[in-house]
């Protein structure tokens, strides 16, 4: 399966989904012109990946800001990983946030409240 790599911009995160390692990275800020269009290929990629490979998945999030439609799209993506986790797959989420940005921490905690998969919230000193 091909990797999915999209360069970041001012309003959209860098995407680096590595199929061989099962490592999915989203990094930057997310308030694209149309969040659902932006996230749709990401959701499709993850769904195919989960169908084709039994591999362990790690989602690494380094998102300093998400607008509400990106939050909704990311929730949909996390729901797919949650389902895979409940079906017995090894799945984990590592959410890195700038320790000075407590709103990013609040946001991570709100996502975690709705999930049972391993979800680690990790402070970092430098801006994420």
């Amino acid at each position: 399966m091909e990797n999915l790599v999209i360069d970041g911009s001012t309003s959209s995160p860098r995407v680096d989904f590595d199929a061989a390692r099962g490592h999915l990275l989203l990094s930057g800020e997310s308030y694209p012109e149309n969040s659902f269009e932006f996230y749709k290929p990401l959701l499709n990629w993850i769904r195919s990946f989960l169908e084709q490979s039994p591999q362990e998945v790690t989602l690494e999030l380094r998102l300093a800001y998400l607008n509400t439609s990106s939050i909704k799209a990311l929730m949909d993506l996390l729901d797919d990983l949650e389902e895979a986790h409940r079906a017995g797959r090894q799945v984990s989420v590592n959410w890195y946030y700038d320790e000075e940005n407590d709103r990013a921490l609040d946001l991570a905690e709100e996502f975690r409240e709705d999930l049972t998969l391993p979800f680690f919230i990790i402070p970092t000193r430098i801006g994420v």
């Binding site: 149309n34 969040s35 659902f36 509400t68 439609s69 939050i71 909704k72």
Partner: peptide, 8 residues
């Protein structure tokens, strides 16, 4: 076709 999530 929704542009937003109705959360704004």
């Amino acid at each position: 076709g929704s542009q937003g999530a109705g959360l704004g």
